[in-house]
């Protein structure tokens, strides 16, 4: 592969990466602008929502439900800090003062932990319930099949 080819390929890859739809690019732009404009909120939000970002990163499952499950609880734990920020004047300083308070972190991260708990325990519980239900159904099916064979003979199972 020549240098020229390599260069072309890199350009193509770059073009592929940059190939986001305009709406997305516009939304990102607005979000960035909002993040700058609402910097105190951005600071508190970014720090309090760290468990959600971690959940989004560490979730290897196909459906990626961890960030949402953790996120909504994390958000519930972050809301009081945001209220506090608003009452503290919504300044960058107050934002920093808020995030260094252990209570802020404990509440937001604690809520996120609850989210993690839900994420880990509820599926197991549901799985157990469904498993038992299916096992019961399987027994019912086997029983019915035996009844059919008893009444109609083995040929009912043929074909």
């Amino acid at each position: 592969m020549t240098d020229k080819d390599k260069k072309d390929q890199d350009e193509k890859a770059a073009a592929g990466k940059a190939k986001l739809p305009f709406s997305v690019r516009f939304a990102i732009f607005i979000l960035l602008v909002a993040a700058v404009v609402l910097l105190p909120l951005t600071i508190v939000f970014s720090v309090c929502m760290i468990p959600t970002f971690v959940a989004a990163i560490v979730d290897t499952h196909k459906n990626k439900t961890a960030w949402f499950t953790v996120g909504v609880m994390n958000l519930a734990g972050t809301i009081p800090s945001l209220f506090s920020l608003w009452y503290a004047g919504f300044t960058v300083m107050s934002a920093f003062q808020l995030i260094i308070q252990p209570m802020t972190i404990i509440i937001s991260f604690g809520a996120a932990s609850a989210g993690w708990l839900i994420y880990h325990k509820v599926p197991l519980f549901v799985s157990q319930v469904l498993f038992r239900k299916n096992e019961k159904r399987l027994k019912e099916i086997e029983k019915r099949q035996k009844e059919l064979v008893k009444k109609w003979g083995d040929e009912v199972a043929a074909g």
């Binding site: 499952h61 459906n63 439900t65 961890a66 949402f68 499950t69 953790v70 909504v72 609880m73 958000l75 519930a76 734990g77 809301i79 809520a111 609850a114 989210g115 839900i118 994420y119 325990k121 509820v122 599926p123 197991l124 519980f125 549901v126 799985s127 157990q128 319930v129 469904l130 498993f131 299916n134």
Partner: peptide, 23 residues
């Protein structure tokens, strides 16, 4: 993995419901 997908979906719903209640 039996029921895990359903379970995760339910956990999303449960989590969302709890968060809404808290907020």
């Amino acid at each position: 993995n039996f029921g895990m997908v359903t379970g995760r979906q339910i956990s999303m719903i449960a989590s969302s419901t709890l968060a809404i209640v808290i907020i």
